[in-house]
Design a protein around this nucleic acid. Sequence first.
DNA 1: CGTGACTTTGACCGTTTGGTCAAATGCGAC
DNA 2: GTCGCATTTGACCAAACGGTCAAAGTCACG
Lengths: 206, 206
Amino acid sequence: MNQTAGTTRIQRRNTAAITEAALEVFSANGFRGATVDQIAKAAGLSKPNLLYYFPSKEAIHQHLLATLMDTWLDPLREMDPEGDPMEEILAYIRRKLEASRDFPRESRLFANEIVQGAPHILPTLEGELKDLVDEKAKVLSRWMEEGRIQRVHPYHLIFSIWSLTQHYADFDVQVRAVLGSGDTDPFPEAEEYVITLFTRMLALKP
Amino acid sequence: MNQTAGTTRIQRRNTAAITEAALEVFSANGFRGATVDQIAKAAGLSKPNLLYYFPSKEAIHQHLLATLMDTWLDPLREMDPEGDPMEEILAYIRRKLEASRDFPRESRLFANEIVQGAPHILPTLEGELKDLVDEKAKVLSRWMEEGRIQRVHPYHLIFSIWSLTQHYADFDVQVRAVLGSGDTDPFPEAEEYVITLFTRMLALKP
DNA sequence: CGTGACTTTGACCGTTTGGTCAAATGCGAC
DNA sequence: GTCGCATTTGACCAAACGGTCAAAGTCACG
């Protein structure tokens, strides 16, 4: 694998194909459930060829998690401490719901990882993630103290946003099985419901 | 394996040890991540001995899922159509939260299964689960029509209860990583938060 | 067109995995 | 105690797995 600054056209094409294929396979089967052959086939490469670009199955997985972590946290980062509290929170919820709709594989990749005890990314959870949540929880607390939204536990508020939004990606099969008529998109109703829920919880009673 | 009515003492002891061990191993590693040797060791048996009681790894998994499905649905079954709406819903939430606290492995077993597309229990989701939810959604709808709780989408109301309560079992590692101080039990605060959330969403404005 | 670096591959290896089997051992009823 | 059945085990197997390697093929560039 090329170590120098130069990245060739083929390198870019193949690493892209590998990460795409790995996302597909890891998110559907978990780390141990995925095989290198599966990923290679999905990427249109032979197994040794794939291992020419990544040193190991573990390395592909780590690379995916690291790359996607930012994508996953950005919606929260964008919550503006200077904006209108209710608008900021609802906009955050909408962004997370969009992410669940548009990137369900990414969501399931993390779900798989965390359900099984986060063996590969526990340090990131305790570091980067905790720091970001600590910061945003302070903002939420300030908004509550200023009387601009109702007072609730700020950390659990964030947990509940994660939980409700990611549910529609991670448990998509269950949602569709229960709703029946697998064709119809559950997201519009989900958005209306979740927005209503947080509005009623956080809005001040006039 | 004994096919007749008689079940020996040893059979009961060993099948119990196997299901307990399998729950531990499957919930922590997923189906493909778990090995028969691991389960056998955890059950205090040799691998061939374990396979004397269950014909295959798949069979143990199926048996676990089937056995646990009822445990998992019972809290919802108990919701009384004749009771007070708000009390019934809040009691259901408390039961689900208790289940997440007391049976996190069961929750993670289902989470693993569903995140990966429910390959082993999709029929059950579309049958037994859907039927139960359909029935209870009707009850919720009636309560709303009678003006005893606020009007929201009944199916998404149930989804949100599942999502919020099971989050504390399935994503326990993340919750603890973000809250820091891994010793303290997050459940009391979680219960207060979740109960507040649903109370504010569903209570009628006086 | 030639050359050196980049890319691809088939054959291969050691390990792990789910599962089998015949033989050995243990147990309980008579 | 002994007989029949239940239980347990070590040895074993074929397939699947992650990964290696030397050799062959291909690309870009002077």
